[in-house]
């Protein structure tokens, strides 16, 4: 039997799922409130975000908060489309979902390195 490469996708999916369970709701609520929290001094908020993104650990944290949810959600979407009997070549769907997640992760890493 041929070995499946699903373990790579599943590991990233699992890490993303764990991350989203532990900080997802808090993070969503925080950004929902952000414009109002920052209203009295938006420049200070920009500086605070800047301080986070200037630190290597901060960059890593933000990278994880983007990359892992990307792989988590696109993995679920890939399998859901199969569940919904979407008639599309498997390879194409894999390219779109996992390729898309990889591409967006790369772009995010690039932006973080620019800062």
């Amino acid at each position: 039997m041929r070995r499946s490469h699903e373990p790579i996708a599943w590991s990233l999916f699992g890490a993303g799922g764990m991350l989203l369970a532990f900080i997802g709701p808090g993070l969503v609520l925080a950004t929902a409130l952000l414009p109002w929290l920052a209203a009295h001094d938006p420049v200070a908020t920009h500086a605070a975000v800047g301080a986070l993104l200037a630190h290597p650990l901060g960059k890593l944290l933000v990278l994880a908060c983007v990359v892992l949810p990307l792989f988590h959600t696109l993995h679920r979407i890939y399998h859901s489309l199969h569940d919904l009997h979407l008639r599309a070549p498997r390879r194409l769907m894999q390219l779109l979902c996992y390729g898309g997640a990889t591409l967006l992760s790369g772009v995010t890493a690039w932006w973080l390195l620019l800062i």
Partner: peptide, 8 residues
């Protein structure tokens, strides 16, 4: 599974 859409 659909929770993935808004989270994406």
């Amino acid at each position: 599974e659909a929770t993935a859409l808004p989270l994406l």
